[in-house]
Simulated scan of single mutants.
Amino acid sequence: MSENLLLIVGPTAVGKSNVAVQVAHKLNGEIVSADSMQVYKEFDIGTAKITPKEQQGIPHYMIDVVNAKQEFSVVHYRELALEAISEIHKKNKLPIMVGGTGLYVRAVIDPYKFQEQPVDNEYREELEKIASEQGSHFLHRQLEQVDPQAATRIHPNDLRRIVRALEYFRTTGEPISLSQDAKYSDNCIFDVTMIGLTMDRDKLYQRINARVDEMISSGLIEETKANLEKSYGSDTIPMGGIGYSQIIDYLHGKHSLDEAIRLIKRDTRRFAKRQLTWFRRDKRIKWIEVDKYPNFEAVVDEIIDLTENNKTGVVSE
């Protein structure tokens, strides 16, 4: 018999982390983060990392796993996340995977055959040179031409993944998205309940804008400066992410702080749209429109009902 797993996904700022903590309290669960940025140590504010106080005593896994200079891929994530889920099961608790990185989620719940990436070092260096001169967005537009599906999944600031996708297309002659999709199966390796949180787009965008303002007031600029002083440059994955990359440009005098904030908000809204596009393709997800519920507790109760109706076998404490 497959082991139980509760999955809570959705776009950034919809409230996944807070909901998951309350669900964990009621369903005797522990949380496994499925966020590709929160695995990095010393990147807290810009990744909206849940604080120890917000965790309310619920153990969280896959947060603060590596530093920014360490190699970390979906392969590493899958291995460590499966270990965490196994550990939670051994405690006779319910693992609750929470996050918005769709590739990480699917790598864990669906059978996935990892294949080595074809390498063309000369072409990779050529692409990196182009990016240094014209920016990652220029290469992202090239990716849109040869693999629009991958371009939807990959953020324009994520130079490493853009280069990898273009290199894959160059060396194999086929889109990397086709290869990734072909390696997935619909046979989930867990007895999984998949919950998606969403809300009215305008309300979500308001929450995103408010979150960015809170990040600035909480010290995003100072956190970015501190990580620059540790030699974490924009070539590292987290520093190339939304929030940090715009603040780096501000610190380097490329634009004003107001413009940096505007760009963070815009790019985060676009990121949320891409997340929804990814998750909407998975018909196993049961969607909850959180803004249609009278309060936070009602959303938590709905998730618990859906989980128990899916026969997880978990007894609430």
Rank of each mutant, 00 (worst) to 15 (best):
I288T: 03
Q56N: 08
A48P: 00
P118C: 03
A84C: 09
I109F: 13
S73K: 10
I130M: 13
I248G: 02
Y244L: 08
Q22E: 15
P11D: 00
T51N: 02
K183R: 15
Q275R: 06
Q246I: 03
R262L: 13
I208S: 02
Y112S: 03
F114W: 11
L143Y: 11
K53H: 07
S245N: 10
E122V: 11
R281C: 13
D282I: 09
V14H: 05
D158G: 01
K311D: 09
V192N: 04
A48Y: 01
K93L: 09
I50Q: 07
K91W: 09
Q117Y: 10
V163N: 12
I247N: 02
D301C: 02
I288L: 15
F271E: 00
V108R: 03
Q56E: 15
G135Q: 06
F72L: 00
S256Q: 06
L94V: 01
H60I: 05
D110V: 00
G29E: 03
G57E: 02
A182V: 01
R161Q: 11
L263N: 12
Y232S: 06
E223F: 08
P238K: 09
H252F: 14
H255E: 08
V300Y: 14
Y61S: 04
L7H: 03
E259G: 03
G135C: 05
P156C: 06
D249C: 08
M194C: 13
D267A: 05
G10H: 04
D35K: 10
K273Q: 15
I31C: 04
E214W: 09
H252P: 07
D186P: 11
P238G: 07
L220N: 00
V314Q: 15
Q55Y: 01
A151I: 02
S185V: 05
A165E: 07
L82Y: 08
L94E: 13
Y205I: 05
Q117I: 04
Y112A: 01
H140M: 03
F114Q: 00
K254H: 14
T277G: 01
H255A: 01
R161I: 01
Y244H: 11
Y123C: 06
R170T: 03
T236Q: 05
Q206W: 00
R211M: 12
S231C: 10
P95Q: 04
S231M: 11
D186K: 14
E297L: 02
S36Q: 04
K225S: 07
T152C: 13
G241N: 04
G15T: 02
G196I: 00
E83V: 01
E30F: 03
A260L: 09
E297N: 12
P238V: 06
D147E: 10
F271Y: 14
I85C: 11
E3I: 00
